[in-house]
Amino acid sequence: MKIEVRKFKENEVGLLSSLWQFYAYHQSTFNGDSVSEKGLFDIDDDYLADVVQGIEDCEAWLICVDNAVAGFVTLESTEIAGREMPELSDIFVLPKYRNLGIATFVIDKLLLNSGNEWHVAVYNEDRTAYDFWLHLFAKLPIKSVEELSPPENDEFHEFVIQNS
């Protein structure tokens, strides 16, 4: 299995927008969002275009497995616990590609070498994601994980991860 993680190209904004629909569908379980009368979640395509073009302070990365689209990840700078740090703001792997170590590969590639610390937040009700992260934290080569209590946003479990 060959996993590739690369930034979206400018002509792939439509791909990112389509993947974001699947992600929004999944997230709607936790955030209560509904589809419009057109049957789509409200996705700001102009914002996504700006992200892909590097205009926004956010990076969008495409995940491919054996040259097939498998998901995406976004990273952005955030201030949490009074400090600036990178945040894994969104990660989505299509169901077909889950439980194959792809998310772990992506996190290793993009965040473990990103600096001393980074942030991740998980919806309180998303038990699957919460368990995934706890399991991952136990096996990653990191110095420490601090779950913010109370979190800065009470909809989420929030973690600050210290790289070794």
Score class of each variant (00 low, 15 high):
residue 2 K to P: 03
residue 2 K to W: 01
residue 6 R to G: 03
residue 6 R to N: 10
residue 7 K to M: 12
residue 7 K to S: 14
residue 8 F to I: 02
residue 12 E to P: 10
residue 12 E to T: 01
residue 14 G to P: 04
residue 14 G to C: 10
residue 15 L to Y: 11
residue 16 L to T: 05
residue 16 L to G: 05
residue 16 L to Y: 04
residue 17 S to C: 11
residue 19 L to H: 05
residue 22 F to S: 09
residue 23 Y to V: 11
residue 23 Y to A: 06
residue 24 A to D: 02
residue 24 A to W: 00
residue 30 F to I: 01
residue 30 F to D: 05
residue 31 N to I: 03
residue 31 N to A: 03
residue 31 N to Q: 15
residue 31 N to H: 11
residue 33 D to N: 12
residue 35 V to Q: 11
residue 35 V to R: 13
residue 36 S to R: 14
residue 36 S to G: 13
residue 37 E to K: 14
residue 40 L to R: 13
residue 41 F to A: 13
residue 41 F to H: 08
residue 41 F to V: 03
residue 44 D to W: 13
residue 46 D to E: 15
residue 46 D to T: 09
residue 46 D to V: 07
residue 46 D to G: 14
residue 47 Y to E: 06
residue 48 L to Y: 10
residue 50 D to V: 11
residue 51 V to N: 08
residue 54 G to C: 04
residue 55 I to F: 11
residue 56 E to L: 13
residue 58 C to A: 10
residue 58 C to N: 06
residue 59 E to R: 04
residue 61 W to P: 06
residue 61 W to S: 14
residue 61 W to Q: 09
residue 62 L to H: 05
residue 63 I to K: 01
residue 66 D to M: 01
residue 66 D to I: 00
residue 67 N to C: 08
residue 67 N to I: 08
residue 68 A to D: 02
residue 72 F to H: 02
residue 73 V to Q: 03
residue 74 T to M: 08
residue 76 E to L: 11
residue 77 S to Q: 08
residue 80 I to R: 07
residue 85 M to S: 04
residue 85 M to Q: 13
residue 86 P to R: 02
residue 88 L to C: 08
residue 88 L to I: 00
residue 89 S to K: 13
residue 90 D to P: 02
residue 91 I to H: 02
residue 95 P to D: 01
residue 96 K to D: 05
residue 96 K to E: 06
residue 97 Y to R: 01
residue 97 Y to S: 01
residue 100 L to M: 03
residue 101 G to H: 09
residue 102 I to L: 11
residue 103 A to R: 01
residue 104 T to K: 11
residue 105 F to I: 06
residue 105 F to D: 10
residue 105 F to M: 04
residue 108 D to E: 14
residue 110 L to W: 06
residue 112 L to M: 13
residue 113 N to T: 10
residue 114 S to D: 00
residue 116 N to C: 10
residue 118 W to Q: 05
residue 118 W to L: 09
residue 119 H to G: 02
residue 120 V to K: 02
residue 121 A to L: 05
residue 122 V to W: 09
residue 122 V to N: 11
residue 124 N to R: 07
residue 126 D to C: 07
residue 126 D to S: 12
residue 127 R to V: 15
residue 129 A to K: 04
residue 130 Y to K: 06
residue 130 Y to M: 07
residue 131 D to M: 13
residue 131 D to R: 01
residue 131 D to I: 15
